[in-house]
């Protein structure tokens, strides 16, 4: 088995299978937890677990170096969306201090053909994404906070996730890098 160049994983899965599997998971969570807020928290936690592992996949495949600048981080997150979800969000709305930006996208494999029923209007259906961002960045010693500003499932025209840099996790930095 020989590989060339950037060694990006070409193995793909039908996004409908992905959409429906995620849907089955959210449905199950809604059955198991009575409170929609609890489901939101669970989704974020699962996203965190995925994020701490997804980052190693990203690093192993792209051979990416460390980010020393939040704009660098934003670009890497954008390419992560492309590699893993097949969508390219746009990076917009940089804060004046350069410590926060928004990711905007119109299509999202997680929410293909999803409608939120009346009893779940507070459900953050894609909350798994905020967890993934938190987990992935934490593993490279960066604490970020992310939340949804706009949600297509709630009648907005795009979905917008805001990502804010909180701090560098100094004591977790591997030896030699400080």
């Amino acid at each position: 088995m020989s590989r060339t160049g950037a060694r990006l994983d070409a193995k793909k899965v039908n996004s409908e299978l992905f959409t429906l599997t995620y849907g089955a998971l959210v449905t199950q969570l809604l059955k198991d937890y009575e409170n929609v807020e609890d489901v939101n928290k669970q989704l974020e936690r699962m996203g965190y677990n995925m994020g701490i592992r997804l980052i190693e996949d990203f690093l192993a495949r792209t051979g990416s170096g460390r980010c020393y600048d939040f704009r660098d981080t934003a670009e890497k997150i954008q390419s992560g969306f492309k590699i893993f979800l097949g969508i390219t969000p746009t990076i917009t709305n940089w804060s004046p201090a350069g410590d926060a930006f928004s990711l905007c996208f119109e299509t999202n494999p997680l929410t293909e053909f999803v409608e939120l029923p009346d009893h779940c209007l507070n459900l953050k259906y894609c909350n798994i994404l905020t967890g993934v961002l938190r987990g992935a960045c934490e593993m490279v010693q960066m604490e970020v906070a992310s939340w949804f500003l706009q949600d297509q499932l709630k009648n907005d025209s795009v979905t917008e996730i805001r990502v804010k840099f909180v701090k560098r996790l100094e004591d977790a930095i591997p030896a030699g890098e400080d």
Partner: peptide, 27 residues
């Protein structure tokens, strides 16, 4: 390391073997 941002031990060489080490960004 005299310079900042050292990569850490990459190769340790002895007469009978070499030890290679790769540290990921996650440690």
């Amino acid at each position: 390391s005299p310079e900042p941002k050292c990569s850490g031990i990459e190769v340790l060489e002895a007469d009978t073997f070499r030890l290679y080490c790769y540290q990921t960004l996650t440690g």
